[in-house]
Design a protein around this nucleic acid. Structure first.
Lengths: 214, 214
DNA sequence: AATAAAACCAACCAGTTAGTTAGTTTCGTG
DNA sequence: CACGAAACTAACTAACTGGTTGGTTTTATT
């Protein structure tokens, strides 16, 4: 594959990221992606077998853009027990900064995965493997309390994803107009994240944890 | 509208709830809904103007099924500062018990609302008015700390929604097979919810809240 | 200049799907 | 029983949409 081809493929991928993140798999249109990429539709099928494959590659793509970011955990200051909320806010902003469509795509993928599970299985495993590496990096640096399981970690990430688009798409458009202001939104994110307890809080809810295995 | 018609409309609505919650707006098929309802497709268009209207009515429907459940807050025991997690677990289970498709539908609605916002605007306002009433009921009973804004409340509800289908659809199918077990899942839910701090934790993250308005 | 990959153009195919139409049958109620 | 609402059957349309084909032009490389 020549240089120009690589670039074209890349443009298609970028356009696909936008379209899929906007409308999800079923809502997205191949022709729209082609036009947005400034490319003939035919080119899409030259580089991707079909729509599903394209979607798979989009998911795979955004994860390669993220990378194994151990850096996420490395410069958290000298505090040896940083707040969970601080870590998560960092996650949110970090991922968002690299791929603005990241959280929303993740949300679609989660909801729609049931439909084309056969195709996306390996992609999801790749994605999870990725997140698992990041998670373990966090564990190694001693940031995650042992009680914070991987499932829990995924949960809060998902929650952030949900929060992100909920605010972007729903709240800001209808009720909470003020949330349209990025500054205010970040404050609310902080407010919400502060609700996610740091591990020192877990002690006080010990009673709820009877028998919880990790 | 006669009795039989009301029943038919109801059956269509129920089938639509299942189909839409399963595949979302774009993924859902009108014919499938008709068949599932044991009804001719024609009947659907006799009672609902089009697919979008049907979806709107579905969302409206599930909220009427929930009702203004002040009961959610009433018998929380003598503890005058119950754990946020306890309240939310209650919410989750309560809504889920009434309409198993509730959380998933809410998630779809959130993601897809951008597309047909014009149609769903009033529905969403109805829905939020509903949740707002429930929220205020919680406030009146003194359960929510004053710092827990409505936006925050929505966030944690959304988070639960996300968690719900994330586990149902993704985690349980791929990595965390054990989560397929409802008992285990409930434990994890508890684990996750316990991460959502009770208000007594907020004091320790006071520093993060500078200038946060409610 | 020659060559081959890359990209374009534009029409086309085939399956799907929201939505419609027309005529017939069933059902409940006065 | 009579009447009208409710429901069915079944075909149809019109638009959409994923995917294809064949022939032409552009671009980079040797």
């Amino acid at each position: 594959m020549q240089q120009r081809a690589v670039e074209t493929r890349g443009r298609i991928l970028e356009a696909a990221v936008r379209e899929f993140s906007d409308k999800g798999f079923h809502g997205a249109r191949v022709d729209v992606i082609a036009t947005a990429a400034g490319v003939n539709k035919q080119r899409i099928y030259a580089y991707f077998a079909n729509k599903e494959t394209l979607f798979s590659e989009v998911i795979r793509h955004i994860f390669t853009l993220i990378g194994d970011e151990e850096a996420l955990f490395l410069d958290l200051g000298d505090d040896d027990a940083p707040h969970m909320s601080e870590i998560l806010l960092r996650h949110y902003m970090f991922f968002h900064a690299r791929v603005p469509e990241f959280w929303r795509l993740l949300a679609w993928e989660n909801l729609e995965s049931g439909r084309h599970a056969h195709v996306l299985k390996d992609v999801r495993e790749t994605a999870f493997a990725h997140l698992r590496r990041i998670y373990h990096a966090g564990q190694r640096t001693g940031i995650f309390h042992e009680r914070v399981s991987f499932a829990t970690y995924l949960f809060v990430l998902s929650a952030i994803a949900f929060f992100y688009y909920a605010n972007q798409r729903t709240l800001s458009q209808t009720l909470n107009r003020d949330l349209a202001d990025p500054a205010v939104r970040e404050q609310v994110i902080r407010e919400c994240l502060s609700l996610l307890a740091t591990h020192d809080h877990l002690a006080s809810t010990e009673a709820m944890h009877q028998g919880v295995s990790r």
